[in-house]
Structure formats: C-alpha cells, structure tokens
Design a protein around this nucleic acid. Structure first.
Lengths: 233, 233
DNA sequence: TTTGAGATTATGCATGGACATAATAACCTG
DNA sequence: CAGGTTATTATGTCCATGCATAATCTCAAA
C-alpha cells in the first residue's frame, strides 16, 4: 500500500487516462481486455470495469461487446451545463427575486412550432408571458406555450405566488426535450421591457419538453442584455 | 421472470424514478436506505447502489454518507451539450469546410484575461485570428490566445492545412476549463467579416482550458448571424 | 453548557465468482 | 462456395460479503 492511496477505481482510471493522453494508446486503438488490465493492476475485473465504464461515459473510449474497448477517435468536447432555476440564479447573485405575469391567453398553435409540437390542427395552447426581476431590474422575459391537455392542473393556476417556470419544473416530469441557444436583436417591445435600445443583442434559450410523445411546453427565455451563461468542463 | 426484462439495475431505477415522479417520495424526503430497498426488490445492495448512483449522477437525488439519500429539491435541468469540432459541424450540414488564418502575432496578456490566466506580469501569448468557412460563407470567427509555454509545438505550426482549433483539440489533453455563452452586437470589423450590418446580434462562446494549473488557451468563437446551437436533454 | 471521544450507521468501494448477452470467428452442410 | 449453425470471447450485469469512510448521535467529562 502506498501512503497516498490504496487501490481504487479512480487510480485505474487515472492510469488509463494517462496512457490515452500520452498517446501510449492512439485514437482508434484497441486497448487490452478487462481481464488483462485487471491482472496488470492486480485488482478485480469489476474495478477495471468501473474505470472503463466511467471513461466510456465521458466519451473518451467506446466499448462494444466482444469487439472490445477502443480509444475514441475524436474525444468529443462535452460540457454539461446546468440550466438554473431562475429564482436560484437570481438569489445566487445576492438579488431579490420577483416575477410578474404579463400576458395569459389561449392561442392557436403558432406556425413555427408545427415541427416541434405534434398537435391536431388548430389545437389551443395556453400562452403566458412572464417577466422575471432581479432587484426590480428585468432579468428574463419568458414566453411560454403550454399544452393544457397534458398538464391539466396548469390551466387552473394563477401564477401569482409561483411562476409558471418554477411550477412546471417542480411538478411536471418529462422524458426528454431539446434546447436551442442563440442570439437575437431586441425588438421594440423587448427593448422597452429591458429599458435598452432596440437592436441590442440578447441571449436567448428555447426549450421544448415532452413526456413520451406528448408535448408539454415550449418556452423562450430571453435574458437581460449582457447576460453570460457559464459552465465548467 | 417477466417477458419484458429480468432483474436489472435499470428496473430498480425505473421504479425509483416512478416514485419520485409520482410524488410517493416528495422533494426533500429521505428515501429508504440501500439495504431496505435491496430487501424490498429482492436484489443485492450493489444493484440498488448502482441505480441510486445513476440517479445521483443525473441530479435527481443527493446522497451523503450516513445522512442517506434524499430526493433533490430542485431537479436541476442538466443539458450535456457536445461542442462540435468545427469541421465536423460544417460537414454535417453538407457544406465544404475551409479556414483561413487572418492574424498571427505575439501579444501581451490582455487585461480582461488577467483573472482567467495566472501568468507572470507581461507574459507573452500567441494570438491568432482564424475565419472558418462553410461553402465559402464565413461561419465562425475565432480569436485565440495560446500559452506557448505549455504547448511548445504550437508555436511552430503554420496552420495552413489544419486549423488551430482542430490541432489543439486533437493534441492537447486538458484537465478542465470553463465556458461562457453570450450574445453580442457585431462591431464594424466583425460586421464586415460576416458581410452584415454592424449591430447584428451574434452568438459567441468563450472557452478557457487548463492542464492542471497551467493555462493552455483562451478562445472566443463568434458564430455567423442566425446561428442556433442545439442540444438534447 | 459546552466539548470531545466513541459508538452507530448509511453510503462508497473492492473482491471473486457466476451467468447473460452480443458480436465475431470457426465450422459445418447442402 | 454460399449460407446457416455453433463455438468463442469480451463486455454487461448480478450476487454475497467485507472493509473503509464520513456524518451523525450519544453520553460523559470539563
């Protein structure tokens, strides 16, 4: 036993990582089997498996039964970014969070959502606009289409105390969805909301979520000018 | 044995997920210990552990020794987005990829990078500007500061055949870094590069990478107006 | 009342063994 | 020789068990 660390799957992973980084095993190479590695490191196959599985999760190696494990050809840059709950995001900056419902009405399925939302022609959706404030300064403008059929309770909420965003996050399980990040020029309305000049660049995220094949909600969140979304890799 | 699936940790995870989604266990609740669950499901503790660890990885539960496992209060929306190799991104759109080195010079550490790059005062960096094209239309404008001390071979490359981006991705192991996503208004120069009006909103990503405590590179990638970055959740 | 040592306990990790599964290789047979 | 069948093999999963470690609780001493 070394003083530093006994056996552990992270040690194995570290050694495997080193060999990949230092090109001992080149991209595309087949690396030794689990039993061989287990013997080399003097540990159980389970432990090697744990290490290899972790590397596979992070995309550095690809594994196939019988075929073996090989070093990935392009180690993909993966960044896991955590979309913050707005309230938490605001409060983490030491600001007071507040929100206000701007609009709430029934709307027909907008044409540009036709691809994302598979709904019968002319289906009605609940459309809400919410402004989220940080210390009374506008922080995020939220435009949301919600399929009331899949989330019936949503239609009866008034969103005075809790925002649509927060309610949906906490009450609606979803099976999947997609997100789009982009930049846009603030139009007249948005510029007035954010008290800035029209044309100012704003960062926006659109998210569509599903439960199985049922669409739940489509939301566009437009951030205050100058907002920077950070993540670690 | 059911016809569908025998015992497996995914079955356990599914059942746990159901209980969380259906509020059998409320957010913040302490859920039964591994031994109890193992007994209930008639499997080994290891298997329950696997399922719980997976849920913890995806952020739905938080685990602490002795304290036990509890349902996360805000199931954080995590999106893993894969930063594409630019060439692959362009070619996936069915376009021809090309790039051109615009600028290459020694520069002092810019003031705004002082926080990210811990370098001795007045340290020199290699500054490169590269334009990436898709079918001869400007696609991404890349501004990069590289610490030649940590990546010596980088200084001798000419980047005619392979871009700085591609070379670094394939040749430089990094231990970590951070990314920032934001929107900006195109300035005069950028507008001319992208053949658009000054002030047009552009989507940009800044990335800083490290190897241990040594800074490697800081890069800002400004995308063509209208670019939308997608990811699945 | 406070503080610190020790018991308790839930998760984390490791082991060796076993069987399952998928993909490939080797081998038949028509 | 083509096509299908079987053997082989590397990974995937599971089990029972044990020890390690961290957080908490208990309780007695200062």
């Amino acid at each position: 036993m070394t003083a530093k660390e006994a056996n552990s799957w992270t040690r194995i992973r570290g050694e495997l990582l080193r060999r990949i980084n230092e090109r001992v095993w080149q991209p595309g190479d087949l690396i030794p089997g689990e039993v061989d590695l287990a013997e080399e490191f003097g540990c159980a196959r389970t432990t090697v498996n744990r290490a290899l599985r972790d590397l596979a999760d992070s995309g550095l190696v690809t594994r196939k039964r019988k075929a073996g494990t090989r070093v990935a050809v392009n180690p993909p840059h993966k960044a896991t970014l955590t979309i913050p709950i707005i309230r938490a995001d605001v409060e983490a900056r030491g600001c007071v969070y507040r929100h206000a419902l701007v609009t709430r009405e029934e709307r027909y399925l907008p044409h540009h959502l036709g691809g994302a939302f598979r709904l019968p022609e002319g289906a009605q959706l609940l459309y809400t606009e919410t402004m989220h404030y940080a210390d009374d300064r506008p922080f995020i403008f939220e435009e949301r289409y919600t399929n009331v059929d899949t989330v019936p309770a949503f239609g009866t909420m008034d969103f005075e105390d809790i925002s649509a965003n927060e309610w949906l996050v906490q009450n609606t399980p979803y099976s999947g969805g997609d997100m789009v990040f982009f930049a846009a020029n603030a139009d007249e309305t948005l510029a007035r909301y954010f008290d800035t000049a029209p044309g100012t660049a704003v960062f926006a995220i659109e998210r569509t979520t599903w439960d199985g094949s049922d669409p739940i909600t489509h939301v566009r969140m437009t951030y205050t000018p100058g907002y920077r979304m950070r993540t670690q890799i």
